[in-house]
Design a protein around this nucleic acid. Structure first.
Length: 448
DNA sequence: TTTTGAGTTGTTCGA
DNA sequence: GTCGAACAACTCAAA
């Protein structure tokens, strides 16, 4: 009866977990050691929101495994082989991590091990790289990808841990590190919380999702992004629950999951696209260095209420509504003319759901440099977007206290109200109409 | 093989 | 106030 190690990374759950089932099956009568490696390289880059979420999720998983989860600090290619020796394990089981960092890390661990590293499943319904055009090349446009992805299909959710599964207890772990200081407003974390929130969304908001998802003033989105990021719930589970629903909202939600899979697929085929222009000619465009205006953008002090509300929601809660992510990103790239990588970095430093593929390809989409990017002439008007998607100004007032004295939609246009700046709200850092023309001109010059 | 039409998320302008 | 056109270039799939 060999013991096995289940090395967890982006799969902090027990239900619908094929790698756990594989580890349990190989152990057959032996024990499984659930291991999480606190990699200092990842913790350094995660930012306070993601670190807090991770630590709470690990705490929840430790409780769910009756204290069986073992934590170790260090580099995985040193820690994992060490744990294998201590346990005398026959194999290490993982869910494949298809990102560029994960692939390199796992290859290194595999070389350092003298037992097999068994990869079962991925954090996606369809493994990145497995949906291709008939000639085997990857899709570069979303809609055809989405069609092929749907046609490819995915397995039904796997069951929970097999009855009789026993956790190995012989290996010593470490205590959870302390959470970063600060007063971030992080929601409930962990596998149970993920399922609870998902059930709530299915009950109240999924059928109205097609329109509701655009309203940052309402709690109409699923809020599943961070749960998915840490694998507290698998997209297979979500897709299975959506399968019986015919509403427009359910279909739109499925498409959003497909976007997540599309961007993971793009990153799998082109790992360098995380930080390099997918369309290299865009590197030759004229950009401005990030300076005072960029700092104002980061701090939520651009003088554009909808933009500032979003940037402050990011700082205050580690999350930003998707509609507002597009508007703030457009402002950074097309009003401030700052390269998308600077904005993407700031988002990744603060987002609780910060996912390299979705975040950075989303930024490239806004910048116009991505695979299947927005057309260059699509420049968001930060005021119009605010009036359209936060028509009563509730979202702005929630996150920008200096505008709370302005009623209704007046919160979007303090320059039109006599006492608009009475509470210390900053003046606009740019003239949007002028900067829009500058952006269009720079794109035109790139073309010629 | 070549052609054709459609393609997540918008804005502005002029009729 | 509403509406359609214009704002590129390229990918992909169907004809």
């Amino acid at each position: 009866m060999p013991d096995t190690v289940l090395w967890l990374r982006r799969d902090l759950r027990l239900a619908d977990h094929p790698a756990l089932l594989a580890a349990a099956q190989q152990a057959a009568g032996g024990r499984v050691l659930p291991l999480f490696v606190l990699d200092p390289r990842i913790l350094r880059r995660a930012g306070p929101a993601r670190t807090t979420w991770l630590l709470r999720s690990l705490s929840a998983l430790r409780a769910a495994t009756d204290g069986g989860l073992v934590l170790r600090s260090g580099l995985p290619h040193e820690v994992v082989p060490q744990v294998v020796r201590e346990l005398g394990a026959a194999a290490v089981h993982v869910t494949a991590d298809p990102g560029p960092f994960g692939r390199r890390r796992d290859d290194l661990v595999e070389q350092a091990l003298d037992v097999p590293l068994v990869r079962t499943g991925t954090p996606y319904a369809v493994g990145p790289g497995s949906v291709t055009k008939p000639d085997g090349s990857p899709y570069a446009v979303f809609t055809p990808f989405c069609r092929a992805w749907s046609a490819h299909g995915w397995p039904a959710p796997a069951g929970g841990p097999p009855p009789g599964l026993r956790w190995a207890r012989s290996v010593q772990g470490e205590d959870l590190p302390a959470e970063p200081a600060g007063d971030l407003d992080v929601p409930e974390v962990g596998e149970d919380a993920a399922h609870h929130r998902w059930a709530e969304f299915l009950e109240t908001d999924v059928d109205g999702y097609a329109d509701g998802r655009n309203r940052p003033d309402r709690p109409a989105t699923s809020r599943m992004s961070a749960h998915l990021k840490y694998g507290e719930i698998h997209p297979r589970t979500l897709l299975a629950d959506l399968a019986g629903r015919r509403s427009k909202g359910a279909s739109t939600y499925r498409t959003e999951l497909a976007w997540r899979e599309f961007y993971a697929d793009v990153l799998w085929h082109r790992p360098r696209s995380a930080w390099e222009y997918l369309r290299p000619e865009f590197a030759g465009m004229a950009y401005d260095e990030p300076g005072e205006r960029f700092a104002a953008w980061q701090a939520g002090r651009t003088g554009f209420p909808f933009v500032d509300a979003g940037m402050r929601q990011l700082l205050g809660s580690g999350w930003m509504h998707n509609r507002v992510r597009m508007v703030t990103a457009s402002f950074c790239v097309k009003d401030l003319h700052v390269e998308w990588q600077h904005g993407a970095r700031h988002f990744l430093d603060h987002l609780v759901d910060g996912d390299l593929a979705s975040n950075n390809h989303g930024w490239q989409w806004v910048a116009g440099s991505g695979t299947d990017a927005a057309p260059f002439f699509r420049v968001f008007n930060p005021v119009t977007q605010g009036l359209k998607f936060d028509p009563d100004g509730d979202y702005v007032r929630r996150w920008v206290p200096e505008l709370r004295h302005l009623p209704g939609k007046a919160a979007h246009t303090p320059w039109d109200t006599e006492d608009g700046y009475a509470e210390g709200y900053p003046e606009r850092v740019v003239d949007h109409a002028a900067e829009r023309l500058v952006a269009l001109d720079r794109y035109a010059r790139l073309r010629d």
